[in-house]
């Protein structure tokens, strides 16, 4: 097993055990020879992706995903010392929870995405009119929407219409239980993409930004 594979395995074990000290030791000390952004890209991001996929497949729990992304976000913010977005320029990305009061989903998304070194604005709980104003004022390129209830998920269609009518060119990526249990729903509410995992959303953004 090469060194990077070993670091990944050890980091994953540490994260699943919610052992922040070991995780920090691996990234800060044992990988100190590598530039910070390489540590993020080569070890932290793939490990978080593995844990996320494990949750989707039933091999990991939401608690694992929450604590892993929380530990990694703290490590990465410290490691990059505020120099988010790494080596490449990155579009403006924001996340909001549409109408629901349960914010865990959007926090996990924020923590996971920031753990890859990419900055994301977190709006918290928003209703449609407030969110339209924020997104247009801030010039957001990609808006991630987290929902828990079907009624909130259906509001995305209204959000899309209002953003379009204001001429706000933002792409909408939706996630959360209603979209996970009904894979056709994202198209019916006129979203641009659905991601069952935070890093899937990031992958879409990267692909979408590539020259066609």
């Amino acid at each position: 097993m090469d060194e990077i594979a070993r670091f990944k395995k050890e980091l994953k074990n540490a994260l699943l055990q919610i052992d922040a000290n070991t995780a920090k030791d691996i990234i800060y000390n044992r990988m100190a020879d590598l530039p910070p952004y390489d540590r993020v890209q080569m070890v932290i991001s793939p490990v978080l992706e593995e844990i996320g996929t494990g949750w989707e497949n039933g091999d990991a729990a939401l608690a694992n995903l929450y604590f892993s992304s929380k530990i990694c976000e703290e490590i990465v913010l410290n490691l990059l010392n505020g120099n988010m977005n790494g080596k490449e320029g990155f579009p403006k990305v924001a996340i909001a929870t549409l109408e629901d009061y349960h914010l865990l989903g959007s926090k996990v998304v924020r923590m996971s995405i920031q753990s890859t070194g990419q900055k994301i604005i977190e709006y918290g709980r928003m209703d449609v009119p407030g969110l339209v104003d924020k997104v247009c004022d801030d010039g957001v390129d990609y808006l991630l929407i987290s929902t828990l209830m079907l009624r909130s998920a259906l509001k995305v269609k209204d959000l899309r219409e209002k953003l379009d009518s204001k001429g706000c060119k933002v792409k909408i990526i939706v996630g959360g239980a209603p979209f996970r249990f009904d894979w056709g729903l994202w198209r019916r509410v006129d979203a641009d993409f659905t991601a069952s995992l935070p890093l899937m959303a990031l992958e879409y953004i990267k692909r979408d930004g590539e020259p066609k």
């Binding site: 919610i18 608690a63 929450y66 604590f67 349960h102 914010l103 865990l104 926090k107």
Partner: peptide
Amino acid sequence: IMQMGFENYLELMY
């Protein structure tokens, strides 16, 4: 989850 929020509850549990 409803008494204290999901995130705080996970923190309490651990």
